[in-house]
Amino acid sequence: MKPARQRVDRQRGYVLHTYPYSETSLIADVFSREHGRLALLARGARRPRSAMRGTLLGFQPLELGWFGGGEVKTLAKAEWCGGLPLLQGKSLLVGYYLNELLLKLLPREDAHEQLFDAYEEALVGLAGNSTNPLTNSPTNPPANLPSNAPILRRFEKALLRELGYGLLLDQEAGSGAAVVATRDYVYIIERGPVEAPSDDDGSVKLSGRTLLDMAQDRYEEPRTQTESKQLMRRLLAHYLNGQALQSRKIFMELQEA
């Protein structure tokens, strides 16, 4: 049995989202490495001179301490750890997508250390891909940035695996036959790939190459990029159970504008 008022100190974690609470406080939804996702009440964090005002910022590694036994714990301490530049531009919008997936799919108070590490790795990747068009002086043009897609696919795969929906990618569902790069497959959710029927029945097909690339987290091939994105979108939509992703909607609206 848990003690009624446990005190936890020096936990590495990230703020996923904050909600205003009462006149001057905040509830921070955080993802910590050793305690998973938690709701922490930050008392007075919205006061003008609160020390926490600039600290409880998403996408920045923090060292957190809290106490309490209920569903919402009280944040005692939040210290900035550093080492990760702030996300900017497109990478920032992608960062919101990661957070939204965690908020919608990850249950509270369930430690997922490997997922935490995957999240942190994704943020490091996004921060490296982060350029602000405004701070690039004419003498320092933005380098051609690598795509964020491989970062996203790796994270999505890690998320599904940690939630217990690990993907079968290199074997056929049922028969267990090895997936062949040159053949086409249909992916059945919660089961895995089966070889596509030769006649076109309208189902979404993907190549064996894509499945094998995904199994090894390789996303250089354009076809792999397109097909893995479509597959992940379909899988996530299934597990999100009809909940729409706001961050994706905003991203799409920007591309259309």
């Binding site: 919008l93 919101y96 997508y97 961050s247 905003i250 609206e253 504008a257």
Partner: peptide
């Protein structure tokens, strides 16, 4: 984005 406040 996480509160559903978009460009519209």
């Amino acid at each position: 984005p996480l509160d559903g406040i978009g460009p519209k």
